[in-house]
Structures are given as C-alpha cells and as structure tokens.
Computed example of a mutant assay.
Amino acid sequence: MTTTNTHATYKLGGEVEINRLGYGAMQLTGPGVWGEVNDRDNAIEVLKAAVAAGVNFIDTAEAYGPKFNETLIADALHPYKKGLVIATKGGFGRTGPGGWIPNGDPAFIKENIEGSLKRLKVDTIDLWQLHRIDPQVPVEKTLAPVVEAVQAGKIRYVGLSEVSIEQVEEVEKILPIVSVQNLYNLGERRWEELIDYTYEKGMAFIPWYPLASGPDALAEMISSIAAKHKATVAQIALAWLLKRSSNILLIPGTSSLTHLTENMKAASIELTDEEFEQLGG
C-alpha cells in the first residue's frame, strides 16, 4: 500500500473538479435515518455553512428519510451555487427506522431517479450511485433505467456502493463507473485492494463512516499524533484518509455547526509518512 501527497481537489470523471473534503447529509434525518430531521432550521443552517466553508460535494440518497433528505437539500441550497456537485443514491427500500432492503427492481430504480430529479430540483443528477446491488435481480436489469437516464441527460455520472472489484468490472461492461462508495476508515480496512484499483482506474473512492477512529490498540497513538497537530482524533482520522490515496473523497456528516467547522479543518492537516505508517498505513 502506498500513500500519496494530499491534493485538495479531485476531478470527478476526469472532468469536474471538486474539493476532496465534502459533506454527507445522512445525519440530517430523523432517528434511524427515518423521517424528517428534528430541527430543520438547524439542518438548513448546517448545509448552508458547509457550502460557505468551501464544500462543493454533497452526498445524499433517496433512502435517507426516505425522500426527506433530498428535499431538505433543495430547500436549503437551491438555486445551487455554481460548481456544487450533489450526489445521490437509489436502490434501497426502507421498512422503517434502521430498516434497509436492497431493491434492484427496474421500476423502483426508475422511480428513484425521477423522484430525485424532482426533489433536488435539477434537470441532471451530477452523480447517481446504486446504493446496493440486489442479489435477487440481474444487475443489467437493475441498471437498464440508469443507462436510459444517462442517455437522456438525466444522469451525468454513475457510481456504485458496497461492491467488490469483480462487481465493478461486471458493471463497467454495462456503463462507465466514476466512483465507489464503501465502508472504510482507520478501523475498517478490508477494501485496501479496491482503493488501489479505483485509483489506477481513475475512479473516486468515497469511504462512508469515515470518522471512525480505529481499534482501541491505536487509541494512544492517535491521541499522541492529534496532540502534535493540535487536532482532534476525528480530524486525524480524516487526515489519514486524505493521505491514504489522492482519489479518496470524504463525506463526513454532522448536524452540528461546531463539528462541521472541526471537520473542515482536517483538510489542512498534513500527516508525515511516519505518522501515517504508525496508524497502520
């Protein structure tokens, strides 16, 4: 595994330049990612503050709420600032708080896409991601309405979530993929090969749950490095991800303005190669 120098921006699809430290909006929903967010005024303030702080990549999904999160983003930020990229996802059915079921039925996928366009108030979705591959439905059937939407100009780029290298290669026979969003952080490292693969292929890697600070065995080392940088443990966790590979885009989420400011400062923390290795690089 090799590290790269921290670059502040990344070109999504090789074309659209975005800041690597973005924002994930999942927390701006009710408990269990279900229903409307408790304090909507605060949520709108957080979204506006994120964009004001330089965030130009926001990640959401049809399943967050469901639907409420996309509507919230439009209410807070539309008309959108030039250059703001909003990524959404489809393909997850919701059964209630904490309930998630992959649904690759083409009719459901088409409904997700059309609904996201309306709720986000856009003519084109910048990045549409398949939330999960449904093992009950052939992936070419699931993606048929996605291919149609791309051809119709309703989707610009397509990404995948929680997939293996083999699955990425399978999907790429159907349509181009520009990003992969899998669980990865200091404590969850099983997708190392996939990160290197996406880097080589010019795809973005978007780790979800990026703020996890790793196993207890690393706690003392992280605290020591954080103290050297006058930073928080969460900031070091984000800085480590930024150093891991230059194709990593971060989407830490928070409903707190204080934590938002804290997270944004992680982009200015440059870990040394030694510090990176000490954290299990």
Rank of each mutant, 00 (worst) to 15 (best):
D39Q: 04
D41E: 15
N42V: 05
N42L: 12
N42H: 09
A43G: 13
A43I: 13
A43K: 07
E45D: 13
E45T: 15
V46C: 11
L47K: 01
K48E: 15
A49K: 04
A52F: 14
A52W: 12
A53H: 04
A53V: 02
A53T: 02
G54W: 02
G54C: 08
G54S: 06
G54N: 05
N56T: 11
N56V: 10
F57V: 11
F57I: 12
F57R: 10
I58A: 00
E62T: 02
E62R: 00
A63V: 13
A63D: 02
Y64L: 12
Y64W: 09
Y64Q: 10
P66H: 00
P66M: 00
K67C: 13
N69H: 10
N69D: 07
E70Y: 01
T71Q: 15
L72E: 05
D75N: 11
L77T: 06
H78P: 02
Y80D: 14
K82G: 09
L84M: 06
V85R: 01
V85I: 14
V85D: 07
T88W: 06
T88K: 08
T88N: 07
K89W: 08
G90R: 06
G91N: 03
G93Q: 09
R94G: 01
T95S: 13
G96T: 00
P97Y: 06
P97T: 03
G98V: 04
G98C: 09
G98K: 02
I101W: 00
I101T: 14
N103L: 09
P106C: 03
P106W: 00
A107E: 01
N112C: 14
E114W: 06
E114L: 14
G115R: 05
L117N: 06
L117A: 08
L117M: 08
R119Y: 03
K121Y: 14
V122D: 08
V122T: 10
D123Q: 08
I125E: 15
I125Y: 07
I125S: 15
D126Q: 10
L127A: 05
W128F: 15
R132P: 04
R132G: 05
I133A: 03
D134E: 11
P135V: 06
Q136A: 11
P138V: 11
V139D: 03
K141S: 13
K141R: 12
A144T: 15
P145R: 01
P145Q: 02
V146G: 12
V146L: 12
V146R: 09
V147N: 02
A149Q: 01
A149P: 04
V150T: 08
A152Q: 15
R156W: 10
Y157R: 00
V158F: 14
V158A: 13
G159Q: 07
G159S: 08
L160Y: 07
S164T: 15
I165H: 04
I165G: 10
V168T: 12
V168M: 11
V168Y: 06
E169L: 08
E169F: 03
E170H: 14
V171S: 05
K173C: 08
I174E: 00
I174K: 00
I174Y: 01
L175S: 05
P176M: 13
V178W: 00
V178F: 02
V178P: 01
V180R: 03
V180D: 03
V180M: 05
Q181G: 04
N182G: 12
L183A: 10
Y184R: 03
G187I: 02
